[in-house]
Design a binder for these strands. Sequence first.
DNA 1: CATATTTCCCGTACGTCGTACGACAATAGC
DNA 2: GCTATTGTCGTACGACGTACGGGAAATATG
Lengths: 250, 250
Amino acid sequence: MTRTGTSGRAAGVDPEALWAPAARPRRGRPPAHSRAAVTAAAVALADAEGLGAVTMRAVAARIGAGTMSLYSYVPNKETLLELMIDEVGGGHRLPEPSGDWRADLRRLFHEQRAIMRRHPWLPAALPARQTFGPNTLAALEYALTVLAPAGLDARAGLEVFSLLSGFVASHVTHELAQEQAAHNADNAGDAGNTAHAFHEAQTRYLRSPAVADAYPTVSHALTEPDAAPSPDATFDRLLDRMINGLAGAG
Amino acid sequence: MTRTGTSGRAAGVDPEALWAPAARPRRGRPPAHSRAAVTAAAVALADAEGLGAVTMRAVAARIGAGTMSLYSYVPNKETLLELMIDEVGGGHRLPEPSGDWRADLRRLFHEQRAIMRRHPWLPAALPARQTFGPNTLAALEYALTVLAPAGLDARAGLEVFSLLSGFVASHVTHELAQEQAAHNADNAGDAGNTAHAFHEAQTRYLRSPAVADAYPTVSHALTEPDAAPSPDATFDRLLDRMINGLAGAG
DNA sequence: CATATTTCCCGTACGTCGTACGACAATAGC
DNA sequence: GCTATTGTCGTACGACGTACGGGAAATATG
């Protein structure tokens, strides 16, 4: 392992070289793969088996390459994660701004939600990572353009974008966890059985006198079977409130 | 390594046993340390050298124990992280609800911000981890109690709490990153020199024609030296907006 | 076609991590 | 003392990210 510095921040790679089209030399053995192929394999792996399954060895195996061959295309794993994040950001469909900036923002973050649901590892991969690939920049440019008529300067626009993205990520994580829990409750089969058992133990704990006496409201709130309202409607409602709260009054 | 299941979710340990006072047996060799001491050492280590420095070996060394001795007090590292999170949650000072629920909420999340600034690893450790230790539950109970008169049921209250916590974490991360950048810009000394160089390369990239032409607004917004307004005032303003947006109208 | 040059492939190896296992040590009850 | 019980921790295993460098495959030059 090679850790630089004391915080978790990775060393960082020249962004120009990272995101440039990478002109190929005209001499020597041609590469058997490509950065895009490596990234796509990593994304597919994360989609199928979770972020924890994305190891250099596993990604290499998936494209039929030796482990160390990956380092011809990607300087290190941290960078590969940034490439993955930007790659899935290509799923955005961004129409022209309509003039109604609230509606445009809604559309943008609905797209973000859809992308995150398609790639459940994304919310976990995002925090504390700044990615400036073309797809990420495109989404950001769209948001800032749309927000300009709302009376927000660039600085405030960045803040709003970041907070709304964080909201969407956190909300999707919560959504998916709840759907997973519901799924586990249904089939008592062996798949996800340990997860179900853990959830039961947790509920038992939260209902125990030790908890229920000291924190009655929490105990009740967390153990109610909660007749979940439509996830889509909930998201819409919360997103609207966030947009109004954050960008509402100049 | 022992990974259970396909997602990154850890196996999970019986919460009752985890958070109970752990009555000591009256026979056999007495423990040389305690769960609290292990947790405190881990927190101190994270405070001093970052979350990445928290390894079982390092924590053990800090209290003068063999590495494997830690496993008498803590079932695994994931659980130790949960203990750390709850431990620093003990920093909350929660006065009686005043009747003005907006003011009470503001106070609560100001406390959260202060805690996160004191323990900069906390925002990174929080996401996708559900902790139900006494301090976390106390803060949650406070929030739900305070929110009840605002016309939110338990389910909505949980949502609001989770979203506001996420906001604070994301905001503090951003704050600290900016302060770090400002610090790096000042001293061209060797400490943080690579970080400074990386930031310069990034700025150069964001100003390059390739970026500036395609994403002019972003390029401008991200490379302006931005005369940062008072962090405290910014936080206050955003928190107010979030509170009004999320809990504002029934 | 032969050779030199450039580029890429990837087997091996190192250091680090979390943690399973089990021999050993220290206590309390008999 | 002896035995049962509990805590300590040295050793070891299987993962991980990745440095290193020898060999293979292509092109350029003659």
